[in-house]
Amino acid sequence: MSDSYEYILKTEHVSKRFGSLEVLKDINLAVKKGEVICIIGPSGAGKSTFLRSLNQLEKITSGKIFIRDELFLHRENDHTVDKLPKEKQQELLLEMGMVFQRFNLFPHMTVLQNVCEAPVVVKKEKKEQVEVRARELLEKVGLSEKADEYPSRLSGGQQQRVAIARALAMNPEIMLFDEPTSALDPELVGDVLNVMKELAESGMTMICVTHEMGFAREVADRVLFMADGIIAEEGTPEEIFTNPKVERTRNFLNAILEA
């Protein structure tokens, strides 16, 4: 059944309002399995809000969210019109891993415990099995020797790689990255991006909100430019970066690339 769907994730007319402030206006996006999508745009454009509303950290005001072609949630004017039963919702949400700008590692747990926590507690997997997998994941992000350290002893880049391993430990189908390198010192960005590249190459479906244009250009299958709560422009990296059609995109890219 795993491949019997067309889109792994789809949104229709998603909008989000904080009081009178409209953050998202009618966002439509369809993601195929294995696609890597980068969302770029000025701050305040609603990029993070959109990402967060995908895995229900924000409740959308109205619109529809489909996961594997199933209607996951349908809301109109802050009221839920239709949704999957709670267990099914929970199950599908586990298919989405999220990496935050500020890492949000659990500071009272070691690196290994951080990675093992959710599979053991949420999926009730056997601790020994999870630990084996966790060590493999830490190896993959290049931190196997830090397994027993507390997060506070790690650099920002190392913490972010642990956070990626933590999300991967749940075996998600989609990874959401919310500006994963924005809180890092410039020299630490590379390590994190490398891990993300490898992940993209391994066929993971990814949606990344990012300011790393080089990364977006190299890795993304599709780039979305968001501004003022809408997707202002959408296309391949080639189209967006070399020949942007919308003026807003041009201005933004000029500003970024000159900086």
Partner: peptide, 14 residues
């Protein structure tokens, strides 16, 4: 406690 801790837990399905 930082709100991010709640969000990370929720994102992990807890």
């Amino acid at each position: 406690i930082d709100k991010g801790q709640f969000e990370a837990s929720k994102a992990l399905g807890m």
